[in-house]
Nucleic acid binder design. Structure first.
Lengths: 136, 136
DNA sequence: TTAATTGCAAATGTTTTGCAATGGG
DNA sequence: CCCATTGCAAAACATTTGCAATTAA
């Protein structure tokens, strides 16, 4: 099914592209370097340049969403159409919890209207400590 | 008054530090390079290294807040105690509009509680087109 | 066949750092 | 006087790009 998604976007189907989509399916949130090291550990070789190129192509085709949680590396995740969500990010273990809250979404629209602003996209990131890390 | 703020934080008062705080007072949102070019244009010379160093010291002392709106440069703004706000960011002219919405803040707390998550800080960025840019 | 894809190495842009010189308390 | 601060140049780090070789359609 990944092949179709890639083809539909007008890109050539290669094993690198399908392998990356499979990876996102299991890991959800990944940055370029993490993808690189996972492939290394599986004895698959893909250059970092290729990873970056595929990531931006996929972003341009709306297959992936780019997140800038911090000033270090950008992370990406699969786009799930009509399933927008926001993030809780643990600053200790980097775990990402996704959530969706209807009230917040609505209120954002109100804020935008009040400022004569047309929202194109948005991000709500709640940084803190997750349950597991808090216990320690 | 900037001198006191700097001294209170345990840093030495220098003209570079006070000049930077004055700049933030008039511009609100600035990145390292913008600070650099503004000083250049005023025939004040301050190296980029110094700017970066002061920015991180000020961030560590809670004098400035660091924002990562995109994957390019980080921007900073003065911390106004007890005056948290979120941002509307125009993707055409880069204008930043600040807003505060009590309902959103409350709902965020509920979301965190439901996930056994302890929020330390958060950012809500609404990207889109501002009124002026939309008219064009 | 041919245009897209890839790997490599070099370039880029932002941010950090080592070190010697300077300056504030 | 002493330690924090600064400037400069070099290093570090994530990301991009030019180019030649490879591969999908």
């Amino acid at each position: 099914m990944y092949q179709e998604l890639i083809k539909k976007s007008g890109l050539k189907v290669t094993k690198h592209k399908t392998a990356m989509l499979q990876l996102f399916n299991s890991y959800r949130h990944l940055d370029a370097n993490k993808i690189y090291t996972i492939f290394i550990s599986r004895n698959i070789n893909m250059s970092l340049a290729t990873i970056y190129r595929i990531l931006s192509e996929f972003e341009a085709k709306n297959i992936l969403i780019k997140n800038n949680f911090n000033d270090e590396q950008s992370t990406y995740e699969l786009t799930h159409p009509n399933e927008h969500h926001d993030h809780l990010i643990c600053i200790k273990c980097n775990k990402v919890i996704e959530f969706y809250n209807c009230d917040i979404e609505k209120t954002q629209e109100e804020v935008a209207r009040a400022n004569n602003f047309r929202i194109i996209n948005h991000q709500l990131n709640l940084f803190g400590i997750c349950e597991k890390c808090d216990d320690k």
